[in-house]
């Protein structure tokens, strides 16, 4: 009880801080200097219609590399933590319903297609590698929901992931020698602004990021899929019906 009151007081204090911040918040009228620079020079320097992509892949390319590394680290730690030490025999699952099976058979190809579209057009329209990769992984979620025992080839996932990561860094290093610096997208000619083949290396880098993120998220999902709850897995300590 005392803990609940303490938590409540803490939340009230936090709410007070937020209220003060909210009341004193003034919406800016103009872009700040960095953003104004990107808006003004982004089109000619990078050549990507989508300024957010230009920032993510080129201006802040190193951040994106770090981001992909974090995802990779998460995947490695997860596979370490969730490794099944011994085979616990076959899991029995209830067959999924007709609706789910039909819907996934119809939808999954289109979901994968949409994911590929989103990361191929990342430099022109909203979206990009991370979003496209997440869409592809969500297609895999649907597949796994339909058939929880489905075997996903983790070797294929690992190969695609490491190949795209390797090429990504390799192209970044090529930027040091052929253009202005690491992950500079001006290795290739800029092309016509606003078309698919524009912005130099940026679309290729974003496709690689998309593949890497998609396979990494799929890898995370398959790790959780492999988790097996031992028989009678319902926790005895949790009393049913009690809101814990």
């Amino acid at each position: 009880m005392i803990k609940k009151i303490f938590a409540f007081l803490l939340l009230i204090a936090l709410a007070g801080v937020f209220l003060v911040v909210l009341q004193n918040y003034e919406t800016p009228e103009e872009l700040n200097l960095t953003a104004a620079y990107y808006a003004e020079h982004g089109a000619e320097e990078v050549g990507a219609a989508n300024l957010v992509s230009a920032i993510v892949v080129t201006y802040r390319g190193l951040d994106t590399l770090g981001e992909v590394t974090i995802l990779f680290l998460t995947a490695s730690i997860l596979s370490f933590f969730l490794k099944q030490r011994e085979e616990r025999g076959k899991r029995s699952v209830r067959a999924s319903s007709e609706l789910l099976r039909t819907a996934s058979a119809v939808l999954v190809p289109f979901i994968f297609l949409l994911g590929a579209y989103v990361f191929i057009n990342g430099h022109l329209s909203p979206g990009g590698g991370f979003q496209g990769g997440a869409i592809i992984a969500s297609g895999l979620v649907l597949l796994l929901l339909t058939d929880p025992l489905r075997k996903v080839s983790s070797r294929l996932l690992a190969r695609v992931e490491s190949a795209s990561g390797f090429i990504y860094v390799g192209l970044g290093i090529a930027g040091i020698f052929l253009a202005g610096g690491f992950l500079d997208s001006r290795v290739l000619p800029a092309g016509t602004f606003g078309t698919l083949l524009s912005a130099g290396l940026l679309p290729i880098l974003y496709i690689l990021i998309g593949l890497k993120v998609g396979t990494e998220l799929s890898g995370l999902l398959t790790r959780f899929q492999e988790v097996q709850v031992p028989d009678g897995g319902d926790s005895p300590d949790l009393k049913k019906g009690e809101n814990v």
């Binding site: 919406t27 103009e30 808006a39 982004g42 219609a49 989508n50 300024l51 022109l124 329209s125 909203p126």
Partner: peptide, 11 residues
Amino acid sequence: YLQGRTAPILD
């Protein structure tokens, strides 16, 4: 966000 402005996509 800035009032009355649009997404940063130069289409």
